[in-house]
Amino acid sequence: MIAHSVFFYIFSLIAIISAVMVTVSKNTVHSVFFLILDFISISCLFIMIGAEFLGMIMLIVYVGAVAVLFLFVVMMLNVAEQKGQWFSSRWDGGTHIPVGLLVSLIIFFELIIVIGGWKYKPDLLNSLSINISTEVTNTRSIGNVLYTDYILLFQISGMILLVAMIGAIVLTYRERAGVKRQSYVKQISRERDEGVDLVEAEKNKGVKIDA
């Protein structure tokens, strides 16, 4: 048991320190790396309490996909150069500090309300409607709950994600003129007759191609 708690404290310490470093570190790319470290240690904590499925999904989804996109965006946008401008009035006429303050105040009060109304159920395990057994793997038990009792919520959240995805594509899609696209069918079905074009060239005038 001692080893277990030692590992627990190591992982939680790494998680907390890296969470702080995400906001503190000056280099934006470093912040993303710390965020990744945070995700990894959180998923280690999940695995330690026996929720191995959640831990692995956390690794695959957040670290394997979401954080890669974060890194991608941060590296491409060169955020470090714009950082100074975000807090000054030069960027687009106004500073972002009032809005940021407002949002963080709202979140702060929400947190206070939630934590203030928090009540621990005295006997949580016995009051659950689903019985937890150690025989069944937790992948199976999550599936049993998710696809039966909560199927509607599950489907709705999937739909919301789909709508968000389509919305993002629609918003950012723009048709660009003059883009040459390759068509395999066209290329393969090209015959000799249409590939070679014999032209009578007039003297001193030549032929205009690619008109």
Binding site: E52, F53, M56, L59, I60, V68, L71, N138
Partner: peptide, 25 residues
């Protein structure tokens, strides 16, 4: 012999991209 072996393999192989991104950046 873990219960979620295939997920573990998939997760670790999806982490593999970080070595490359870190090196390149």
């Amino acid at each position: 012999d873990i219960n979620v072996g295939i997920l573990y393999l998939f997760a670790v192989s999806s982490l593999g991209v970080y070595g490359i991104i870190m090196g390149g950046w």
